[in-house]
């Protein structure tokens, strides 16, 4: 890296074909690429960080509604998706490994496996979203007539008043009502639970968008690998694609416990 300074814009013919003219050598190019990718990922941390911040604040003020709303999510599907994503991270890491040791076929196999696992994640997610649609648990004005007050819904036929709602709630799930605060299902319960779903759809939606972009990226990488564009000297695209894929995995690692498991101890009867 610190050897002779080039005075011309051209590299000698012996240089790697992928070496860009503004880099001294392949190693410098690779390290610059990694640094640049991480700077991009830092902006992504900030991007998701804003939404996590919103989650933290609203959850801390609406603990009861958030726990109850969280229990409406399908934990099994969330759990399966977590496993699927971790598997995809492994196959992605292995794709990077095989690109480092220069095994073209194995790179392609691992990239395709990663894509399949990513697609599995999105399919499961689609079923979850559809389930929410069927249950009218979509926030906003799509279902204006259905409040997010499941306690009140159980009082079928009766008018939605505060008293029966509160009784049904405490009978059914006493753990969901934290002590010490004024937190009992009240008139504002539905809109506070709705806020959980706003955050749920925003965060999982943006996450899923990242997955879709990631799969698009994997398609390009697979084609490049198939055409034998990578070698132990040059495989930065696979490496950087891996960084992106793992980052998206990390976001889900936080989303799963924060969104799906909030009120799980309440369901199991409270220990």
């Amino acid at each position: 890296m610190a050897e002779a300074v080039h005075t011309t814009m051209e590299h000698p013919a012996s240089a790697h074909a992928a070496l860009q003219h503004h880099f001294e050598n392949m190693e410098q190019q690779r390290e610059a690429g990694t640094l640049g990718m991480w700077i991009f990922l830092v902006t992504e941390i900030m991007f998701f960080g804003g939404m996590f911040m919103a989650y933290i604040l609203y959850r801390s003020y609406n603990a009861d509604a958030f726990a109850a709303a969280s229990n409406r999510l399908n934990v099994t599907m969330g759990f399966i998706n977590t496993i699927v994503l971790i598997c995809s991270s492994l196959t992605m890491a292995l794709a990077v490994y095989y690109s480092q040791v220069g095994k073209r076929k194995m790179i392609v196999v691992m990239l395709i496996l990663t894509m399949m696992l990513g697609t599995t994640f999105l399919v499961v997610k689609a079923f979850e979203y559809y389930d929410k649609y069927e249950k009218s648990e979509i926030p906003g004005r799509l279902f204006p007539s259905r409040p997010f007050n499941w306690y009140a819904e159980e009082e079928h036929g009766k008018q939605v008043t505060q008293e029966p709602a509160r009784d049904a709630a405490t009978e059914r799930n006493p753990q969901a009502v934290p002590t010490g605060q004024e937190q009992k299902p009240d008139a504002s319960f539905a809109s506070r639970a709705e806020m959980f779903f706003f955050i749920y759809f925003a965060m999982t939606g943006i996450h899923a968008l990242h997955m879709v972009i990631g799969i698009g990226m994997l398609i390009v990488l697979t084609i490049m690998a198939w055409r034998d564009r990578f070698s132990p000297e040059y495989h930065s695209p696979v490496e950087l694609g891996g960084l992106y894929w793992h980052f998206v995995d990390i976001v889900w690692i936080f989303l799963f416990p924060l969104l799906y498991l909030l009120g799980a101890h309440g369901i199991s009867g409270g220990h």
Binding site: V75, F79, I83, I86, A264, H265, S268, G270, H271
Partner: peptide, 14 residues
Amino acid sequence: MVLTVLTYWVALYD
């Protein structure tokens, strides 16, 4: 994998 199972398991307790 182990930590994922752990995440789920500890969530069952209050």
